[in-house]
Design a protein around this nucleic acid. Structure first.
Length: 572
DNA sequence: AAAACTATGATTAGCTGA
DNA sequence: TCAGCTAATCATAGTTTT
């Protein structure tokens, strides 16, 4: 077999990363303190941070940053010391069922809030009256009394787990409500005529009503760039632009979030708003390898002086899969594969294609057959493996295209089906590594990393290939086979640092994070790509957007990142 | 019980010519 | 400006085989 002959034995390369990797146990550096410009006027950071749940304080700042009047936020905080009570007070406002109707954008929009705060005092009493119930019933009952629907409450219970505190539950519901309220295209919202009116005329008119009326609704919807090269790719010559990060986005820690670019409308606007208003960087991995992979990345990393992994991977199908070259007909003009997904084409399909081609004598097939074959080839990423023979990619070919070492996902008890699934859900290593390359100079002594939704370890592999020493990796991954893959890779590559496993992001709480941060001296980097199941176009059944069963775990990414930011900012 | 196998559209965005 | 077209898409559910 000469399919390895291209010299891609990346797992055999000496990466010269044998620096001493001492684990630090020093106290938090006071220099890592953050400032929160959003809340500086009326929301006293010090007081808010001292309340029970740190993430709430930043949520408050978000409300201010998103256009809620500071007076209102401040007032609510004054009335209720605990953020977890004040946030629902804000969110039970008209915003929840806010129709996209120009009538509701009048200047008295916020004046309605005052009325909705009227019974906020009674919540605390209700909390004490439910002691006799079980934990779950108690929480449900409490949430119901707070004005949440049973549906919201039970979704939150399911998402946050049975042992979640009321604070965590309300936190989750608030996040979901914020998303729902902020999404002008949310399903239960108005019929089309009004929407059109808004898009065509009313939208712009509102924008010119002065800075005071600036709200989240005024933002232009995000558009995907064409070409999809983000702030630049190694193979396209263009100067790196300068970008101005929002102050609230600044680290520590550095963070990096990933998900599918082609999500339902409004999803990326929501993601952006939660992640400190950082503009997503949309990049297609076809500029890094032989397969397309359109993804959005939200991060606060520097974008100057990036460098790619070398050697550069093959960037055409024929270079990546040289054995297929001799079978490739001239009328199949593909040079790149489409997105590598979690499932492959069936044998029945390739049989149908073979028969359709064999019926065409020995000449070129007629146009309609060519179109039929090409449509299926593009849909299922088929490659030519013989005369009239098409086939889906093998697991190891997917591994290679995604930038993983050969056999990275092989063996150790994982089925072939699960290999495709895990690979299809992974990062493209070269793409991510290009973005993360700036960490090498920033952390020559290595990094402490929090890796959420780690999967098969795309982030870890990328950093290792870059030569960034991994001091501590706290990895959170639900799938046991995936955790085994990362653990196996960790040992096989003779990592000198520490790998710590968790299995459930919804169970990661502030106490655990405080403990971890105090032990390792803080996280330098938080990375994760949350589930795309409910965002991806391939999902026929439950493409429910960010509120979907799995994709709503995005809010846990935000929650955990925000907790880390707050803990790291806290003077110690 | 686990793994393999197979059938199953809709939502976007971009392009083009009327 | 817009209907009509091309094109892409980190998947799920049900069934069969191992």
């Amino acid at each position: 077999m000469d399919q390895n002959a291209s010299g891609e034995d990346s797992d055999n390369i000496d990466w010269d990363t044998e620096d001493e990797l001492e684990i630090q146990s020093s106290p938090l550096p006071s220099s890592s303190r953050l400032t929160y410009p959003d809340g500086e006027a009326t929301v006293g950071d010090a007081e808010v941070i001292s309340t029970t749940d740190l993430s709430h304080s930043k949520l408050i700042n978000h409300f201010v940053g998103m256009g809620f009047p500071e007076e209102l936020v401040a007032k609510v905080i004054e009335e209720n010391g605990n953020c977890s009570v004040t946030l629902p007070a804000l969110e039970n406002s008209p915003r929840q069922e806010q129709p996209v109707d120009s009538d509701h954008y009048s200047s008295d929009y916020y004046e309605n809030f005052a009325d909705d705060l009227s019974d906020s005092d009674s919540w605390c009493e209700d909390e004490e009256n439910t002691d006799s119930l079980s934990g779950k019933e108690k929480a449900l009952s409490f949430l119901k009394k707070m004005g949440y629907t049973m549906e919201e409450a039970s979704i939150a219970m399911e998402r946050c787990g049975p042992d979640a505190s009321v604070d965590e539950l309300t936190d989750f519901i608030c996040a979901a409500q914020m998303a729902r309220a902020a999404d002008p295209f949310f399903p239960e919202l108005p019929e089309k005529p009004k929407r059109k009116l808004l898009e065509n005329g009313m939208w712009k008119r509102k924008k010119h009503r002065g800075c005071d009326s600036r709200t989240m609704f005024d933002e232009e919807p995000l558009r995907l760039p064409n070409p999809m090269i983000g702030y630049g790719v190694p193979t396209e010559l263009c100067p790196t632009p300068y970008r101005n990060l929002p102050e609230a986005a600044a680290g520590p820690p550095y963070f990096y979030y990933e998900n599918v670019a082609l999500a339902p409308k409004g999803v990326w606007d929501t993601i952006k708003r939660f992640l400190y208003d950082v503009e997503p960087e949309f990049v297609d991995s076809k500029y890094f390898c032989a397969a397309a992979r359109k993804r959005g990345y939200v991060h606060n990393l520097p974008i100057q002086n990036r460098f790619p992994l070398v050697p550069l991977p093959p960037r055409t199908i024929k270079e990546a899969l040289p054995l297929t070259r001799r079978w490739w007909p001239a009328w199949d003009t593909r040079t790149k594969l489409n997105c590598l997904q979690t499932c492959i084409g069936s044998a029945k399909l390739t049989e149908r294609l073979r028969k359709a081609l064999e019926d065409c004598y020995d000449d070129e097939p007629p146009a309609h057959v060519q179109k039929y074959v090409m449509d299926e080839c593009r849909k299922w990423n088929l490659v030519w493996v013989g005369r009239n023979k098409l086939a889906p990619l093998e697991c190891d070919e997917v591994e290679m295209l995604l930038g993983f070492p050969k056999n990275h996902t092989r063996g150790g008890g994982i089925s072939r089906t699960d290999r495709y699934k895990s690979l299809g859900n992974s990062f493209q290593v070269d793409t991510v590594a290009y973005h993360l390359s700036v960490l090498k100079d920033l952390f020559p002594g290595g990094i402490n990393m929090l890796s959420l939704f780690s999967g098969i370890g795309g982030a870890e592999v990328a950093l290792h290939k870059l030569g960034v020493p991994l001091k501590t990796v706290v990895s959170v991954e639900k799938s046991e086979v995936n955790r085994n893959i990362v653990r196996g890779w960790w040992e096989q590559t003779n990592q000198k640092g520490t790998l710590i496993d968790f299995d459930d992001v919804t169970r990661v709480d502030g106490d655990q994070l405080e403990q971890l941060i105090s032990n390792i001296g803080g996280f330098d980097f938080v990375i994760g790509g949350s589930p795309c199941n409910n965002l991806a176009g391939s999902n026929r059944h439950h493409r429910d957007g960010l509120e979907g069963k799995e994709s709503s775990l995005f809010y846990d990414y935000f929650r955990i990142l925000d907790l880390v930011k707050c803990i790291m900012a806290k003077p110690n």
